[in-house]
């Protein structure tokens, strides 16, 4: 349990700093940024109690908000996917998730990919809707959601690939 705690705290700090110091300044083609800190929420232990998941997600979202002066948009989006996470876990990993036997790194690629991309898409949609806060800009919201999601998903897949190799 202690090992879990330490690795999650370390992941929190590393991902938050990486996000605000490097990734939020990429601005590829003017506005496309990956939001890799979502990975922290995806990787929270799958059997963690639901209210803790929600609370920790709020915490990392708020941290990013404070750094980036964005009000509460990251917190809102993070809380939303934390709340929806069990549904998507069940949807992507099926019955094995119910038996609490899933290890994130050992799941089949297709299932893992569905899980990652669905949550990232929802997170980004909420994020950009709140950031732009104006329904007349719906095209811009969808454009930003699509491109940033692609970037984030790609980055998450690369990172999972890297860490898998390290463990061998």
């Amino acid at each position: 349990m202690n090992k879990f705690l330490i690795s999650n705290i370390a992941r929190f700090i590393i991902l938050a700093l990486l996000q605000v110091l490097i990734l939020s300044n990429i601005n590829f083609l003017g506005y496309i940024n990956p939001y890799l800190y979502v990975f922290f929420i995806l990787l929270l232990p799958l059997n963690l109690t639901q209210y803790k998941t929600i609370f920790f997600s709020f915490l990392i979202g708020l941290t990013i908000d404070i750094f980036e002066d964005t009000g509460g948009i990251h917190a809102a989006a993070s809380v939303l996917i934390a709340y929806l996470r069990p549904n998507f876990l069940r949807f992507s990993f099926g019955i094995s998730y119910e038996h609490q036997t899933v290890k994130f790194h050992q799941t089949p690629f297709a299932q893992r990919f569905t899980y990652i991309s669905l949550l990232v898409l929802i997170h980004h949609l909420m994020l950009f809707s709140l950031e732009i806060f104006d329904l007349s800009y719906i095209v811009l919201i969808l454009k930003k959601t699509l491109f940033s999601s692609l970037f984030t998903i790609l980055l998450i897949l690369i990172v999972t690939g890297l860490f898998k190799q390290n463990k061998k």
């Binding site: 979202g61 708020l62 009000g71 509460g72 917190a75 709140l130």
Partner: peptide
């Protein structure tokens, strides 16, 4: 309830920031 509370809080922060 926790979700609704924290979500509402974030939305209030967002509205204030606008």
């Amino acid at each position: 309830l926790l979700f609704l509370f924290l979500f509402l809080l974030s939305v209030i922060f967002t509205i204030q920031s606008h």
